[in-house]
Protein backbone atom coordinates (compact mmCIF):
# COMPACT_ATOMS: atom_id res chain seq x y z
CA UNK A 1 0.00 0.00 0.00
CA UNK A 2 2.85 2.38 0.84
CA UNK A 3 4.63 1.65 -2.43
CA UNK A 4 1.35 2.12 -4.31
CA UNK A 5 0.69 5.48 -2.64
CA UNK A 6 4.22 6.63 -3.39
CA UNK A 7 3.96 5.57 -7.03
CA UNK A 8 0.65 7.33 -7.45
CA UNK A 9 2.03 10.54 -5.95
CA UNK A 10 5.02 10.33 -8.27
CA UNK A 11 2.75 9.81 -11.28
CA UNK A 12 0.87 12.98 -10.36
CA UNK A 13 3.88 15.23 -10.94
CA UNK A 14 4.11 15.04 -14.77
CA UNK A 15 0.35 15.53 -15.21
CA UNK A 16 0.43 18.45 -12.81
CA UNK A 17 3.35 20.04 -14.66
CA UNK A 18 1.65 19.54 -18.02
CA UNK A 19 -1.58 21.07 -16.67
CA UNK A 20 0.40 24.02 -15.29
CA UNK A 21 1.92 24.59 -18.74
CA UNK A 22 -1.59 24.67 -20.26
CA UNK A 23 -2.80 27.10 -17.61
CA UNK A 24 0.29 29.26 -18.15
CA UNK A 25 -0.23 29.28 -21.92
CA UNK A 26 -3.84 30.41 -21.42
CA UNK A 27 -2.74 34.05 -21.09
CA UNK A 28 -0.64 33.74 -24.23
CA UNK A 29 -3.53 32.27 -26.25
CA UNK A 30 -5.53 35.47 -25.86
CA UNK A 31 -4.84 37.77 -28.80
CA UNK A 32 -2.79 40.76 -27.67
CA UNK A 33 0.13 41.59 -25.43
CA UNK A 34 0.06 39.56 -22.15
CA UNK A 35 1.18 42.49 -19.97
CA UNK A 36 -1.67 44.73 -21.14
CA UNK A 37 -4.12 41.82 -20.85
CA UNK A 38 -3.03 41.15 -17.27
CA UNK A 39 -3.24 44.81 -16.30
CA UNK A 40 -6.57 45.50 -17.97
CA UNK A 41 -7.66 48.44 -20.10
CA UNK A 42 -6.75 51.16 -17.59
CA UNK A 43 -3.02 50.37 -17.46
CA UNK A 44 -0.46 53.08 -18.22
CA UNK A 45 2.49 52.39 -20.56
CA UNK A 46 4.83 52.60 -17.54
CA UNK A 47 2.87 49.92 -15.68
CA UNK A 48 2.93 47.70 -18.77
CA UNK A 49 6.69 48.17 -19.14
CA UNK A 50 7.16 47.41 -15.44
CA UNK A 51 5.14 44.15 -15.59
CA UNK A 52 6.84 43.13 -18.84
CA UNK A 53 10.18 43.38 -17.01
CA UNK A 54 8.93 41.68 -13.82
CA UNK A 55 7.39 38.74 -15.68
CA UNK A 56 10.26 38.51 -18.11
CA UNK A 57 7.88 38.90 -21.06
CA UNK A 58 10.83 40.01 -23.20
CA UNK A 59 12.52 36.67 -22.48
CA UNK A 60 11.88 33.31 -24.21
CA UNK A 61 8.59 31.57 -23.42
CA UNK A 62 10.09 28.78 -21.33
CA UNK A 63 11.97 31.29 -19.13
CA UNK A 64 8.68 33.07 -18.59
CA UNK A 65 7.10 29.78 -17.62
CA UNK A 66 9.74 29.15 -14.95
CA UNK A 67 9.39 32.67 -13.55
CA UNK A 68 5.61 32.16 -13.40
CA UNK A 69 5.93 28.69 -11.87
CA UNK A 70 8.34 29.85 -9.17
CA UNK A 71 5.92 32.69 -8.30
CA UNK A 72 3.04 30.22 -8.16
CA UNK A 73 4.95 27.86 -5.89
CA UNK A 74 5.55 30.80 -3.55
CA UNK A 75 1.81 31.53 -3.54
CA UNK A 76 1.95 34.51 -5.90
CA UNK A 77 -0.77 34.02 -8.53
CA UNK A 78 -0.65 37.61 -9.76
CA UNK A 79 -2.97 40.56 -9.16
CA UNK A 80 -6.63 40.82 -10.06
CA UNK A 81 -7.33 43.51 -12.65
CA UNK A 82 -10.80 44.14 -11.25
CA UNK A 83 -10.17 44.01 -7.49
CA UNK A 84 -6.56 45.28 -7.53
CA UNK A 85 -5.81 42.61 -4.95
CA UNK A 86 -3.67 39.47 -5.02
CA UNK A 87 -5.46 36.69 -6.91
CA UNK A 88 -4.96 34.25 -4.04
CA UNK A 89 -6.78 36.58 -1.63
CA UNK A 90 -9.66 37.02 -4.11
CA UNK A 91 -10.00 33.24 -4.47
CA UNK A 92 -9.72 32.71 -0.71
CA UNK A 93 -12.64 35.07 -0.13
CA UNK A 94 -14.88 32.73 -2.14
CA UNK A 95 -13.53 29.56 -0.58
CA UNK A 96 -15.82 29.45 2.48
CA UNK A 97 -19.02 29.54 0.41
CA UNK A 98 -17.82 27.01 -2.13
CA UNK A 99 -16.41 24.54 0.40
CA UNK A 100 -19.54 24.66 2.58
CA UNK A 101 -21.73 24.31 -0.51
CA UNK A 102 -19.69 21.30 -1.65
CA UNK A 103 -19.93 19.66 1.80
CA UNK A 104 -23.70 20.15 2.05
CA UNK A 105 -24.15 18.89 -1.50
CA UNK A 106 -22.05 15.81 -0.80
CA UNK A 107 -24.17 15.16 2.27
CA UNK A 108 -27.36 15.26 0.16
CA UNK A 109 -25.80 13.03 -2.49
CA UNK A 110 -24.91 10.41 0.13
CA UNK A 111 -28.14 10.73 2.14
CA UNK A 112 -30.38 10.58 -0.94
CA UNK A 113 -28.32 8.62 -3.45
CA UNK A 114 -27.20 5.61 -1.46
CA UNK A 115 -30.45 4.57 0.33
CA UNK A 116 -32.58 5.07 -2.79
CA UNK A 117 -30.02 3.13 -4.83
CA UNK A 118 -30.08 0.25 -2.32
CA UNK A 119 -33.87 0.32 -2.31
CA UNK A 120 -34.03 0.17 -6.11
CA UNK A 121 -31.57 -2.74 -6.23
CA UNK A 122 -33.21 -4.78 -3.48
CA UNK A 123 -36.68 -4.24 -4.99
CA UNK A 124 -35.34 -4.91 -8.48
CA UNK A 125 -38.14 -4.96 -11.09
CA UNK A 126 -40.90 -3.66 -8.80
CA UNK A 127 -42.68 -0.32 -9.14
CA UNK A 128 -40.38 1.13 -6.44
CA UNK A 129 -37.37 0.30 -8.59
CA UNK A 130 -38.97 1.73 -11.72
CA UNK A 131 -39.91 4.91 -9.89
CA UNK A 132 -36.42 5.30 -8.41
CA UNK A 133 -34.47 4.59 -11.59
CA UNK A 134 -36.88 6.48 -13.85
CA UNK A 135 -36.84 9.45 -11.48
CA UNK A 136 -33.06 9.33 -11.29
CA UNK A 137 -32.77 9.37 -15.07
CA UNK A 138 -35.19 12.30 -15.24
CA UNK A 139 -33.26 14.33 -12.66
CA UNK A 140 -30.01 13.62 -14.50
CA UNK A 141 -31.65 15.26 -17.55
CA UNK A 142 -32.66 18.53 -15.87
CA UNK A 143 -30.52 21.65 -16.44
CA UNK A 144 -29.26 22.68 -12.98
CA UNK A 145 -30.09 26.36 -13.37
CA UNK A 146 -33.67 25.57 -14.40
CA UNK A 147 -34.17 23.41 -11.31
CA UNK A 148 -32.62 26.15 -9.16
CA UNK A 149 -34.91 28.84 -10.57
CA UNK A 150 -38.03 26.78 -9.85
CA UNK A 151 -36.83 25.86 -6.35
CA UNK A 152 -36.44 29.60 -5.72
CA UNK A 153 -39.92 30.24 -7.13
CA UNK A 154 -41.54 27.55 -4.97
CA UNK A 155 -39.57 27.49 -1.70
CA UNK A 156 -38.27 31.06 -1.48
CA UNK A 157 -40.79 33.27 -3.29
CA UNK A 158 -43.89 31.10 -2.82
CA UNK A 159 -43.54 29.43 0.58
CA UNK A 160 -40.85 31.70 2.01
CA UNK A 161 -39.11 28.77 3.74
CA UNK A 162 -35.57 29.57 2.60
CA UNK A 163 -33.70 32.68 1.42
CA UNK A 164 -33.43 32.92 -2.37
CA UNK A 165 -29.94 34.32 -2.78
CA UNK A 166 -26.66 35.36 -1.20
CA UNK A 167 -24.76 33.80 1.68
CA UNK A 168 -23.52 35.68 4.76
CA UNK A 169 -20.48 34.00 6.33
CA UNK A 170 -21.15 31.59 9.21
CA UNK A 171 -18.88 33.80 11.32
CA UNK A 172 -21.33 36.71 10.83
CA UNK A 173 -24.53 37.29 12.75
CA UNK A 174 -26.73 34.21 12.56
CA UNK A 175 -23.80 31.81 12.84
CA UNK A 176 -24.44 28.24 11.71
CA UNK A 177 -28.05 29.15 10.92
CA UNK A 178 -26.76 31.03 7.92
CA UNK A 179 -26.36 27.59 6.34
CA UNK A 180 -30.07 27.82 5.47
CA UNK A 181 -28.94 30.11 2.64
CA UNK A 182 -27.20 27.07 1.16
CA UNK A 183 -30.22 24.77 1.48
CA UNK A 184 -31.73 25.37 -1.99
CA UNK A 185 -28.36 25.70 -3.76
CA UNK A 186 -27.09 22.43 -2.27
CA UNK A 187 -30.30 20.59 -3.21
CA UNK A 188 -30.08 21.99 -6.74
CA UNK A 189 -26.50 20.91 -7.06
CA UNK A 190 -27.15 17.52 -5.48
CA UNK A 191 -30.12 16.52 -7.67
CA UNK A 192 -28.34 15.47 -10.88
CA UNK A 193 -25.40 13.99 -8.97
CA UNK A 194 -27.53 12.03 -6.52
CA UNK A 195 -29.35 10.73 -9.58
CA UNK A 196 -26.08 9.37 -10.98
CA UNK A 197 -25.20 7.76 -7.63
CA UNK A 198 -28.65 6.11 -7.43
CA UNK A 199 -28.14 4.59 -10.86
CA UNK A 200 -24.62 3.51 -10.02
CA UNK A 201 -25.44 1.96 -6.62
CA UNK A 202 -28.32 0.09 -8.22
CA UNK A 203 -26.30 -1.16 -11.20
CA UNK A 204 -23.27 -2.27 -9.20
CA UNK A 205 -25.40 -3.95 -6.51
CA UNK A 206 -27.24 -5.91 -9.19
CA UNK A 207 -23.86 -6.91 -10.62
CA UNK A 208 -22.51 -8.08 -7.27
CA UNK A 209 -25.79 -9.89 -6.45
CA UNK A 210 -25.05 -12.32 -9.28
CA UNK A 211 -21.73 -13.42 -7.76
CA UNK A 212 -21.08 -16.76 -6.07
CA UNK A 213 -20.29 -15.42 -2.62
CA UNK A 214 -23.76 -13.87 -2.44
CA UNK A 215 -25.38 -17.20 -3.29
CA UNK A 216 -23.29 -18.80 -0.55
CA UNK A 217 -24.40 -16.16 1.96
CA UNK A 218 -28.03 -16.76 1.04
CA UNK A 219 -27.58 -20.54 1.17
CA UNK A 220 -26.20 -20.18 4.71
CA UNK A 221 -29.62 -18.79 5.59
CA UNK A 222 -28.52 -15.23 6.38
CA UNK A 223 -31.21 -12.60 6.67
CA UNK A 224 -31.82 -10.94 3.27
CA UNK A 225 -31.16 -7.48 4.73
CA UNK A 226 -27.81 -8.66 6.09
CA UNK A 227 -26.89 -10.13 2.70
CA UNK A 228 -27.93 -6.89 0.98
CA UNK A 229 -25.87 -4.63 3.23
CA UNK A 230 -22.87 -6.70 4.27
CA UNK A 231 -22.32 -8.88 1.24
CA UNK A 232 -23.71 -6.94 -1.69
CA UNK A 233 -23.55 -3.26 -0.78
CA UNK A 234 -20.05 -3.37 0.71
CA UNK A 235 -18.70 -4.82 -2.50
CA UNK A 236 -20.77 -2.50 -4.65
CA UNK A 237 -19.31 0.41 -2.69
CA UNK A 238 -16.01 -0.07 -4.54
CA UNK A 239 -17.56 1.09 -7.81
CA UNK A 240 -19.42 3.87 -6.01
CA UNK A 241 -16.25 5.15 -4.32
CA UNK A 242 -14.58 5.33 -7.71
CA UNK A 243 -17.44 7.48 -8.98
CA UNK A 244 -16.97 10.11 -6.29
CA UNK A 245 -13.99 11.56 -8.16
CA UNK A 246 -16.20 11.97 -11.19
CA UNK A 247 -18.93 13.46 -9.01
CA UNK A 248 -16.51 16.05 -7.71
CA UNK A 249 -15.73 17.20 -11.25
CA UNK A 250 -19.43 17.44 -11.98
CA UNK A 251 -19.91 19.41 -8.75
CA UNK A 252 -17.25 21.94 -9.68
CA UNK A 253 -18.78 22.40 -13.11
CA UNK A 254 -22.33 22.74 -11.90
CA UNK A 255 -21.33 24.91 -8.93
CA UNK A 256 -20.40 27.57 -11.49
CA UNK A 257 -24.01 27.60 -12.66
CA UNK A 258 -25.65 27.11 -9.25
CA UNK A 259 -23.64 29.87 -7.55
CA UNK A 260 -24.68 32.19 -10.39
CA UNK A 261 -28.39 31.31 -10.05
CA UNK A 262 -28.36 31.89 -6.27
CA UNK A 263 -25.87 34.82 -6.38
CA UNK A 264 -23.55 33.06 -3.94
CA UNK A 265 -20.18 34.72 -3.27
CA UNK A 266 -18.27 31.53 -4.17
CA UNK A 267 -15.43 30.53 -6.47
CA UNK A 268 -17.79 29.27 -9.18
CA UNK A 269 -19.48 32.64 -9.62
CA UNK A 270 -16.06 34.28 -9.44
CA UNK A 271 -15.00 32.29 -12.53
CA UNK A 272 -18.02 33.43 -14.56
CA UNK A 273 -17.73 37.04 -13.48
CA UNK A 274 -13.99 37.08 -14.13
CA UNK A 275 -14.59 35.74 -17.63
CA UNK A 276 -17.23 38.40 -18.30
CA UNK A 277 -14.94 41.10 -16.79
CA UNK A 278 -11.93 39.76 -18.70
CA UNK A 279 -10.06 39.50 -15.39
CA UNK A 280 -7.60 36.95 -16.79
CA UNK A 281 -5.23 36.64 -13.79
CA UNK A 282 -8.16 35.49 -11.64
CA UNK A 283 -9.38 33.02 -14.29
CA UNK A 284 -5.87 31.60 -14.55
CA UNK A 285 -5.51 31.31 -10.76
CA UNK A 286 -8.89 29.68 -10.20
CA UNK A 287 -8.34 27.10 -12.94
CA UNK A 288 -4.93 26.20 -11.55
CA UNK A 289 -6.29 25.73 -8.04
CA UNK A 290 -9.32 23.72 -9.19
CA UNK A 291 -7.16 21.46 -11.34
CA UNK A 292 -4.74 20.78 -8.46
CA UNK A 293 -7.67 20.15 -6.12
CA UNK A 294 -9.35 17.85 -8.62
CA UNK A 295 -6.15 15.82 -9.11
CA UNK A 296 -5.74 15.43 -5.33
CA UNK A 297 -9.37 14.28 -5.01
CA UNK A 298 -8.81 11.75 -7.77
CA UNK A 299 -5.68 10.55 -5.97
CA UNK A 300 -7.62 10.13 -2.72
CA UNK A 301 -10.36 8.27 -4.58
CA UNK A 302 -7.80 5.94 -6.14
CA UNK A 303 -6.18 5.30 -2.76
CA UNK A 304 -9.58 4.61 -1.19
CA UNK A 305 -10.30 2.31 -4.10
CA UNK A 306 -7.05 0.43 -3.56
CA UNK A 307 -7.84 0.10 0.13
CA UNK A 308 -11.37 -1.21 -0.53
CA UNK A 309 -10.19 -3.59 -3.21
CA UNK A 310 -6.69 -4.96 -2.42
CA UNK A 311 -6.44 -6.46 -5.93
CA UNK A 312 -5.83 -2.95 -7.33
CA UNK A 313 -2.60 -2.13 -5.48
CA UNK A 314 -1.23 -5.64 -5.98
CA UNK A 315 -1.48 -5.46 -9.73
Amino acid sequence: MFVYTFNRLLALIPTLLAASILVFLFIHLIPGDPASILLGDTATPEEIAELTRAMGLDKPLWTQYFIWLSNVVQGDLGTSVFFREPVLAVIASGAETSILLACMTMMWIIVLGIPIGILAATRHGTWADQLASGGAMLFASVPTFWLGLYLILIFAVGLGWFPSSGFPSITDEGGVFNLRYLMLPSLTLAAPNAALIIRLVRASMLDVAREDHVRTARAKGLHPARVAIKHIFRNALIAVAAAFGFTFAALVSEAVVTETVFSLPGIGRLVVQSILRRDYPVIQGVILIIVIFYMLINLLVDLAYARLDPRVSLS
Partner: peptide, 19 residues
Protein backbone atom coordinates in the same frame (compact mmCIF):
# COMPACT_ATOMS: atom_id res chain seq x y z
CA UNK B 1 -5.87 13.54 -23.01
CA UNK B 2 -5.12 12.86 -19.32
CA UNK B 3 -4.11 16.48 -18.83
CA UNK B 4 -7.26 17.79 -20.52
CA UNK B 5 -9.33 15.44 -18.40
CA UNK B 6 -7.85 17.08 -15.31
CA UNK B 7 -10.12 20.03 -16.16
CA UNK B 8 -13.77 19.57 -15.15
CA UNK B 9 -15.97 19.58 -18.30
CA UNK B 10 -17.93 22.83 -18.00
CA UNK B 11 -14.87 24.66 -16.63
CA UNK B 12 -12.85 23.64 -19.69
CA UNK B 13 -15.72 24.78 -21.91
CA UNK B 14 -15.92 28.11 -20.05
CA UNK B 15 -12.21 28.74 -20.34
CA UNK B 16 -12.22 27.94 -24.05
CA UNK B 17 -15.24 30.21 -24.57
CA UNK B 18 -13.36 32.95 -22.71
CA UNK B 19 -10.77 32.80 -25.47
Amino acid sequence: VDVLMAFPALLLALVLMAL
